[in-house]
Amino acid sequence: MTRPVLLWWGIGAILAAIVVGIVVTGPIAPAIDSGWNALMVDVRGPFLIGAAGVLDRIGGGWIASYLIPLVILAALLLARRWRAAIFVAATLLVSVAAVQLLKGMFARARPESMLVTSDFGSFPSGHTANAATLATLAVLLLPRLWVLIVAIAWTLAMALSRTVVSAHWLSDTIGGMLIGTGVTLVMAGFVLTWARSRGAQPDLPRAEPDLPRAEPGA
């Protein structure tokens, strides 16, 4: 995608997330949120709760905040992709900042049937936003079909897991996906071409051509 396309899609996704936040925190709560939460309470069993608990730990806390980013950055640096590493680190920081800003702005209460411990602010889902950010980064830096499939599956699994344990309303996860994707696309619109390049490579010494030697006595 070209720079204008990345920027417009990114800005559009961020604005859509803000619109969703305004709607769901208005005087009339959307019925789909309460209905979906009730459905998750009815269908969740030991397997779903256990799987959601694993994603809860992977997608938040020190694992999501430190371990996973450090592993990704180390891999990029070992591959001599330092520009991509800067892009990833900056995008993750901006995504977290955007999520926290919207959480404070909307101050939405979480579902009462929540099974895990979480911080204040239900909209948007930080776990889902982080998953969407990592997924979009992966697709942009490694544009392969299998990467796209895994990225979509990872993001949807994280979003579903947040509603299984009632840590978020359904619309919170939609807002998280929009914010994570939108922030990444906007950042990519500014630096993706630069981030994909490996930078200037050092010039290797050129071998001097062998010159014919004069024969003695010639």
Rank of each mutant, 00 (worst) to 15 (best):
R196I: 08
W169E: 06
R57P: 00
A98V: 11
V150A: 15
A138V: 09
V88L: 04
V164Q: 03
P205E: 14
S171V: 09
R144D: 11
W146V: 11
L192K: 02
P212H: 10
L102Q: 04
M187A: 14
L141R: 01
G59V: 09
L178H: 04
V150Y: 09
F190S: 01
D172V: 01
R162K: 12
L76C: 03
G189F: 07
A17S: 15
S65P: 01
S122G: 11
L6V: 07
A159F: 05
T163N: 03
L148A: 14
L7V: 11
A131S: 14
W82D: 12
L6K: 03
G104V: 08
Q100A: 05
I149V: 15
A214C: 06
N130G: 15
R196T: 13
I11F: 11
W8T: 09
I72K: 00
G35K: 03
P30C: 10
L93M: 12
I22Y: 02
A195I: 09
L102R: 00
L102V: 08
R108T: 04
T181G: 07
V88C: 10
L48W: 14
L134D: 01
S95E: 14
A75P: 03
M40P: 02
G182E: 04
A151R: 02
F87G: 03
D56R: 01
A90F: 14
V24T: 15
T193N: 08
L73Q: 02
D33S: 05
W154H: 02
L70A: 15
P124S: 10
G12L: 08
L39N: 06
A138W: 04
I58G: 02
L141S: 01
L101N: 00
P216S: 09
G126W: 00
V20R: 03
R83C: 10
V116G: 02
D172R: 03
D56V: 05
L156A: 12
T193M: 01
A157N: 06
A107E: 12
A97H: 00
I32D: 04
A64W: 06
A31G: 07
S65D: 14
A159G: 15
I22S: 05
R198G: 14
L93W: 09
L145Q: 06
W194F: 09
T193E: 15
I32A: 12
G182F: 03
A75F: 09
V20I: 13
V96S: 06
P216I: 10
V186Y: 01
P46C: 02
V94W: 06
Y66P: 00
V164S: 03
M177L: 13
A218K: 00
V164I: 15
G12I: 02
V41N: 06
A132C: 04
R196E: 10
L141G: 01
